[in-house]
Design a protein around this nucleic acid. Structure first.
Lengths: 367, 367
DNA sequence: TGCCATGGTGAATCTATTG
DNA sequence: CCAATAGATTCACCATGGC
């Protein structure tokens, strides 16, 4: 049993050979932005894994034998989830994928390890394998779990980009993709499919586009034939793969070598207003876009207030920020003053947000 | 603390008042064919949530959904799963439903308890509540787990009936239904929604039609307003509900009292292979647009046939798809059942194609 | 009667920054 | 650490009411 060796620096854009837990333990803590993990779930649950206590159990009862196997799988799952969590930056996140054979145990282990589930996502397969015996439903989906390192983490999520990719409505938790077939499906030297569970690149594309930024580091502890690495490289993200099987490593290395990264400028995605620089309302007054004493009107026309020199508003009985006065006048818990208050220009009512945008445009032109 | 009393005989078609674990422990072992369980999800909501228009979301903050820790929730889950398993006949099965908050723990506990998972099923909601803050994906599905009492169980599964209800192709593991709204949603005396998590009858219809037989006993330990009981009664299954809250029990009792069971002859489902219907007529039945047992009339008024729960028709001497029965009755080589068969609404004869169009519109709206 | 505008609501782990 | 405040954010469906 090898002792834990000194942590080495981050081996970006490489495939590490070996057991994923041992390899992860050698990497520096808090160095990875995203973990993508597609762990084995077709494990023979009959002694293939080491048992936690190494004891031999007489298989006299199926139930207990099964429980023993579950315990071994759970121990394995706890170990790799724990090692991965150590590597994640405080605001990092993880995606895992599985089927009903393992995903419930894995999800529970994620919660127990301190991960904070953000969504479970269903991958609906357009072309699943039928159930040949007609004894169950066609198993037409797999389940992904998206979780942040902790409840407090400020995870990356490109909401607007996903919404744009979905014809302008929020992306849902069910995603429809075909399974990996045709040219995308890697073959080995014998012409057979190289890996039994190769994931479609479209799935990784959506995951990496939505929950990482260009330049981020993506770690895949069950690299297989390197789908996550190939998509990460294409999208300008760094990747690290860990894989035990030499044949998979070789295929992945060759595959990723063929990938041509997208131009850096083409990696831009839609952003929300939250990403824009903050402009205090007072700036509008300072710059003379609004005059002190000028009267603003509410969206519904029922209220009005006067601009004061310090960037506060004065209504009949309320005084404060554009948001505070709007909220109090409406009896609402909160109010976005930028879209609530309007001023008049050439007879038309214009939201003060237009003036903020004007300043933002000027700032952007200066850069 | 009451001791465990003598097991009493099976109280068919009644609602038991009390804690589900205690009540289940008093019922005789191996007496139930199917358990349907919609347990508390253990949502861990932090603060209030408002919609962009400042209205407040009516959250599930009921006391019955509060647990102190994962450990407390797990203990509760283990206990009721164990009590339910004792009640199941050796070939019995269970359906559970949950969201990412609880379903992983629940699924793992099911495996640990000795249940054998047959499928996980995704209920895709056509009209989920959006994510108002744009911080996550729209949580647009819930997960069901279908499991037999043990690996060896010869569970009930009406493969052909489901296939018939699904356009002649195998039923998949992702099911699409709207959430429970409108007239189906029970209101309390104050005109508010009676229960925060009422499930759609269409969901229970598919479950009971596919995995029980007429006359079977269906136990629901978290009965709520009795959706499972109402559908069980309609489909000629026996039901037993357990519910702690008197208000829910009263509403469920009244609701189930209104249910008119389908004629026994109308409960027959397909058991042999037949030609693939080109249209999923069964969807109309699942969604309650047509009742099993309802009589359809031919275009020329000379023939009639009864709707069966799996979307086939039964005429005097003919049985099969809407197209087959129409063709045979007319002595024609073929027949478009969609335009041939009519139902009555408010005295008018309407082609069933109008109902198909209604569903198509819904599907088109969700792309 | 129909059509359209308006308003309500659903199992929700739903913010970020400054002081 | 907490408190205060800025300010960003929604889809499908159903019920109601006006014209």
């Amino acid at each position: 049993m090898a002792g834990k060796t000194r942590e080495h620096s981050l081996p970006l854009d490489t495939i590490l050979a070996g057991d994923c837990i041992a390899e992860m333990e050698r990497l520096p803590a808090e160095s990875v932005d995203l973990v993508f993990a597609d762990p084995p779930y077709n494990l023979q649950l009959r002694g293939d894994l080491h048992r936690p206590n190494n004891s031999k159990v007489d298989a006299v009862d199926d139930h207990w034998d099964q429980f023993d196997s579950f315990a071994a799988y759970d121990a394995f799952t706890r170990d790799w989830l724990s090692a991965a969590r150590r590597l994640l930056k405080p605001d990092g996140a993880i995606w895992t994928i599985g089927s009903y054979h393992n995903v419930f145990r894995m999800g529970a282990a994620m919660q127990d390890a301190g991960y904070w589930i953000l969504n479970d996502v269903v991958w609906r397969k357009t072309n699943p394998m039928p159930n040949f015996r007609g004894k169950r439903l066609t198993n037409a989906h797999e389940t992904l779990i998206w979780a942040s390192r902790s409840e407090k983490a400020k995870y990356t999520f490109h909401y607007e980009a996903l919404k744009a990719a979905n014809d302008g409505v929020q992306m849902r938790s069910d995603w429809t993709f075909p399974i990996c077939t045709g040219h995308e499906r890697l073959k080995n030297a014998r012409g057979e499919k190289a890996h039994p569970t190769q994931k479609p690149e479209a799935l990784l594309h959506r995951i990496l586009m939505a929950t990482t930024n260009p330049g981020d580091v993506v770690l895949d502890p069950f690299f297989g034939t390197g789908t996550s690495g190939a998509v990460a490289k294409m999208l300008g993200r760094h990747w690290i793969g860990i894989e035990r099987e030499a044949e998979y490593r070789d295929l992945a290395q060759a595959r990723i070598g063929m990938v041509r990264p997208v131009e850096r400028a083409a990696l831009q995605v839609s952003t929300s207003k939250r990403a824009e620089p903050r402009i205090p309302f007072g700036t509008l007054v300072e710059r003379g876009l609004l005059r002190p004493g000028e009267v603003l009107h509410s969206l519904n026309g029922r209220h009005s207030a006067q601009v004061r020199p310090d960037g506060t508003l004065a209504a009949a009985r309320e005084t404060g920020s554009i948001h505070q006065v709007g909220a109090r006048l409406e009896g609402a818990p909160s109010c976005n003053g930028w879209t609530y208050w309007h001023f008049k220009r050439e007879g038309k009512r214009v939201p003060i947000d237009a003036l903020r945008q004007q300043i933002r445009d000027e700032l952007a032109a200066m850069r």
